[in-house]
Design a protein around this nucleic acid. Structure first.
Lengths: 341, 341
DNA sequence: TTGAAAGCGCTAACAG
DNA sequence: CTGTTAGCGCTTTCAA
């Protein structure tokens, strides 16, 4: 196994110094290299099939050209980050934009015992994209670090981080209002765990806003919370029927749950939307696959991913960039799961 | 911004040499460190909040503790790797197992112009997990490299790589046979592009096997191929009806397409399974979500991901490990999308 | 316009 | 049982 070719092999081949190689590789504007030398260098690189060692580069330049993406485990203690397609779509777009800009993406689930900030330091990550909510300690640690951070879908109060998200409260409002406008009064709220500073809480506030505005009463028994999963959607359907609250509609804060709810409701002999109307949230492709297709709150997940990558890369490049707070637009997408009463 | 603490800071603090720090950090069995020294070192590490610089470590040890995962872009030219939940589930399990073993995961879509092998060299990846099929040049390049590689879901002929997969031909056979056993004779085959050495080709062979065995004729007009996507499933449904071949059943080589097919068929006024029976492949959670729920060929995707990580890590650790060829079991999962004629 | 040389933080002989 | 030290491959100041 022949030794890997390094910069001085190239230097020798091109008849220049290693510094020169480095200059042409990094397009140093400060150093001017004659076109002829540059050509020789490129020729040598090609001839020897030279590929720079990024570890060495990171070591001296303190830049890794890697960004980290932290995705929540939807079910605590489980290894699956991706039961919700939302994350897959988000991640693939982060990766795409990062790659286009010469960055690689290191993914990680969250580990209770090992702090992520260590990973960041270990690897010299240039920035971190964090999706969702985490325990407070997590944010405390993060604040200590010098690493640029973009929070996505979090209302964590720290004004320290860049933020990308949507107006979740408004989303909850729009969804509920849509149901109310269609004549529904008894509206269930189905959601993942409601945590302060989490998106579900905001969406819940929006739900309340709409209900109050319409002079409707919120029935505590019509609030169902559990895991953000298809399974819990089915479970919630069961609970709805057992509860006997006779809701005619449900606002579900994630499409994956909404689809589960629909499935569960059907299993309970309900027809959608004839007996129960359902509005989801996210507009992942599941909303289209569902039968009936799901009326939902659309947010542009791909755009969220692209922006997250752009912002973190800019933050990595420009240390004193002003704090970003990006709110992406949302809208109601009407499909077949809501009936006018 | 204070300088990052490094190994010699720790050494000073603990009153030992940097070598000693390195020894205790790496649990070098060859070097025996007194318990007392070890304690002092750990104390110093804690006190200074020292985190090793992995770039430096990689530089000298030639090991990065990173593995790369290459996921295909389901639609060529598009940024989405994850329209198929199969990949999300796979990836999350690779990441989980890698993390448990002290490895990080670098993800990447495939880039026509930049060879992935450069990424591997650049970053000093310890191994690569490659999912799906790629152009031949890709494999050629890969063979050149010294990096251990695990191919997943590929029948690329190179005996050079480790392999993890299922018996796709048998899967195609089982699916088709199931339909035949239920009295179907006119069975459509719906699939992603059929490429030699790809899983779809093998599944197609299995389809042929079953048809031949039953003395049934394969109607070339009943073969539908396109993108592995929900959309193409819908499209295929349209084609099926327009074709007027009156198939009473379809074997679809991916659940995501199968669910699309069902949706499309319904849009065309067909009832499932009364008018058309459908069998999918993979058993992703969509199969359950679908209405009617989908009879499909189950493969253990999570296990595939875990194994891929284990094999690649073992290969990274033990350079002359014998070649692995792992075939995971599959089975028919009966749900509601098949009717007995 | 280019080169020499000093590190970046760490590991691993080799010495003691 | 522990320390000294020579690099790993690269960037970057400083000098020429």
């Amino acid at each position: 196994m022949s030794r890997r070719v390094n910069i001085s092999d190239v230097a020798k081949e091109a008849g220049v110094s290693t510094a020169t190689i480095s200059y042409v590789l990094n397009h140093k504007a400060t150093e001017s290299i004659s076109a002829e030398t540059e050509e020789r260098v490129y020729a040598a690189i090609k001839k020897l099939d030279y590929v720079p060692n990024l570890s060495a580069r990171s070591l001296v330049s303190k830049r890794s050209n890697m960004i980290g993406v932290v995705i929540p485990q939807t079910e605590p203690g489980k290894e699956f980050m991706f039961s919700n397609p939302y994350y897959g779509e988000f991640l693939s777009n982060v990766e795409y934009t990062a790659r286009k800009n010469g960055y690689h993406v290191l993914i990680s689930g969250t580990e209770a015992n090992q702090s992520y900030i260590n990973v960041a330091k270990n690897r010299g990550l240039d920035g971190i994209v964090i999706v969702g909510m985490y325990p407070d300690e997590f944010y405390m640690e993060l604040k200590q670090s010098q690493v640029p951070i973009v929070m996505v879908d979090s209302y964590c109060n720290e004004h320290y981080f860049h933020n990308i998200g949507i107006n979740d409260r408004n989303g909850g409002y729009l969804a509920t209002q849509h149901l109310i406008n269609n004549g529904h009064h008894k509206i269930a709220f189905v959601s993942g765990k409601i945590r302060e500073e989490g998106v579900n809480y905001k969406r819940f506030l929006g739900y309340q806003d709409a209900m109050k505005e319409a002079g409707l009463e919120i029935n505590p028994s019509s609030i169902y919370t559990g895991n953000v999963s298809h399974e819990y959607g089915i479970e919630a359907a069961k609970l709805m029927i057992e509860n006997g609250q006779n809701e005619t509609a449900a606002f579900v804060t994630a499409d994956i749950m909404a689809v589960g709810l629909i499935k569960g409701l059907k299993q309970q002999g309900q027809r959608i939307p004839e007996d129960v109307s359902v509005v989801g949230f996210d507009d992942v492709y599941l909303a289209n696959i569902s039968d009936p297709s799901l009326t939902t709150i659309r947010q542009n997940i791909a755009e969220k991913g692209n922006l997250a990558a752009e912002v973190i890369i800019e933050a990595a490049t420009n240390k004193n960039m002003t704090k970003r707070d990006i709110i992406l637009p949302i809208e109601v997408v009407e499909r077949q799961s809501v009936r006018k009463l």
